[in-house]
Structure formats: structure tokens, C-alpha cells
């Protein structure tokens, strides 16, 4: 019989495997805030823009939701994380900004400084 700790380590390894299987190691990870506060600020629209882009063939992107990081006055927030680079956090994202983030940042690597939270 494996011990509980052995079992949980196995579960973790499997979980990591599944996450990677979903494309976690893709070059860019995009997290859209989806807590009540974020949704109230309009993050469902933002998520929709990203989801549509992915379904229309945007590649090398791992799209995920996340809870509230505490930046209520700057919501909706979107994070773009790339290995070896500082995470970029965008604030007050709407449909328009989301589209620009896709076109300029995700496709062209341009960090849109004026919307960055620091």
C-alpha cells in the first residue's frame, strides 16, 4: 500500500502532466482575472476576446482564468507570463485593449507600456 504522501505525490505528478498536456509550456501564458469583482468590471468580455482568438487559431498561448489578486481599482486585469521574463500585468482591460494585447503583445512581442500595472 502506498502511503498518503506517496499517493499525493503521484497525483501531483499526474496533475502537472495534464497541465503541460494542455499547453502550459507554450511560450506565453495568459491569465484573465475572473473573480466576482473582475467580472463586475467586465472581465467576461475580455475572456471572450481571448477565447475567440484562440479558437480562431492563435497559437503558442496557454489561456487560463485566475482569482482576485487584489487590484480591485485596476480591474479587469490580464497577466502575460513568459519564461525568463518579468510577468506583464495589464490593468483596466476591455474588449478593445484585449484585442490590442493579442495583436501587439502576443503576436508581436510588444509590451504596451501605458496599460502596464507596476
Amino acid at each position: 500500500m502506498p502511503t498518503p504522501l506517496e499517493l499525493i505525490r503521484k497525483k501531483r505528478a499526474e496533475a502537472v502532466g495534464r497541465i503541460i498536456g494542455k499547453g502550459y509550456l507554450s511560450t506565453k501564458r495568459v491569465y484573465v482575472g475572473m473573480a466576482t469583482c473582475e467580472i463586475a468590471a467586465g472581465s467576461k468580455d475580455v475572456m471572450d476576446v481571448f477565447q475567440k482568438a484562440v479558437s480562431r487559431g492563435l497559437t503558442d498561448v496557454y489561456l487560463s482564468q485566475k482569482g482576485c489578486a487584489g487590484r480591485c481599482n485596476l480591474e479587469p486585469t490580464v497577466e502575460v507570463i513568459e519564461a525568463g521574463k518579468s510577468p506583464v500585468k495589464y490593468g483596466r482591460v476591455d474588449r478593445e485593449r484585449a484585442q490590442q494585447i493579442i495583436d501587439r503583445h502576443l503576436k508581436n512581442g510588444e509590451i504596451i507600456q501605458e496599460w502596464v500595472i507596476d
Binding site: 502537472v16 482575472g33 487560463s64 482576485c68
Partner: peptide, 22 residues
Amino acid sequence: CGIIDPENIDDYLSLRGYEALA
């Protein structure tokens, strides 16, 4: 909070989730 996908248990497991329980 604000780091993982709260609706995906895999995210939690991958960050040593439920290891304390084990």
C-alpha cells in the same frame, strides 16, 4: 489567489495541494 485557476484541481495539486492533508 490570482495565480491559479480556481476551477482546476490540477492547478492546486501542482502547487503541493493536499500534501498537508496527506
